[in-house]
């Protein structure tokens, strides 16, 4: 039952990492308006979806630690404010509204040639999640191992030659840790 519920919730998520909130007066919202939980299923092929406990994280971090200028208060950084104060970009709260899912495909790589583009080194969605999550977890001693957050799918185990797909002979990892 739990799995079905999970799948249902995953299917309902419009875009990965999207947070379901009313899109008005975003930067006036505070932690109490935020969702309790967000399902992240970006790497669903290799890893099962991550049930991100958003509520818990609002206790340990400020909104802007993750959402940059887009929520939790006015834009204060002067170099961000030049463009982002009171603009549409400021209304984008979900990660995937700015961070693309396939950063290195031919179209996205080509788009970087635009000389007017300011954020030309903007991480893709997968990079944004991991850099942000692991970056912070390292400093606060949070979990940093792959499977601390994700459970590996069968395809994942195949890719990593582990679990059911571990090399038949040869040394096992278990003795070393």
């Amino acid at each position: 039952m739990r799995t079905r519920k999970k799948i249902l919730r995953t299917a309902l998520a419009l875009a990965v990492g999207t947070i379901f909130i009313a899109p008005s007066q975003i930067w006036c919202m505070d932690a109490s308006d935020a969702p309790e939980s967000v399902t992240i299923d970006l790497m669903a092929e290799l890893y099962g979806p991550v049930e991100f406990d958003h509520l818990m994280h609002t206790d340990v971090a400020s909104c802007q630690d993750c959402h940059h200028q887009t929520t939790g208060g006015e834009v204060t950084d002067p170099s961000c404010a030049r463009c982002h104060r009171g603009t549409d970009e400021g209304d984008s709260v979900g990660c995937s509204e700015c961070h693309v899912t396939d950063r290195f495909n031919a179209t996205n790589v080509k788009a970087l040639e635009d000389p007017q583009l300011y954020h030309f080194d903007k991480p893709g969605l997968k990079g944004a999640y991991h850099i942000n999550c692991i970056g912070c977890h390292k400093t606060v001693d949070g979990p940093t191992g792959c499977q601390d957050c994700h459970t590996m799918t069968d395809a994942g185990e195949k890719m990593f030659s582990t679990g059911k797909h571990a090399p038949a002979k040869g040394t096992s990892s278990s003795g070393h840790h």
């Binding site: 792959c146 499977q147 890719m159 990593f160 030659s161 582990t162 679990g163 571990a166 090399p167 040869g170 040394t171 096992s172 990892s173 003795g175 070393h176 840790h177």
Partner: peptide, 20 residues
């Protein structure tokens, strides 16, 4: 791991999640 699969290289001696 990705390289091994993409280039169809032989199975590794140890799993790719083995950090020893």
């Amino acid at each position: 791991a990705a390289c091994n699969k993409e280039q169809q290289l032989p199975e590794p001696a140890k799993p790719y999640d083995d950090f020893s």
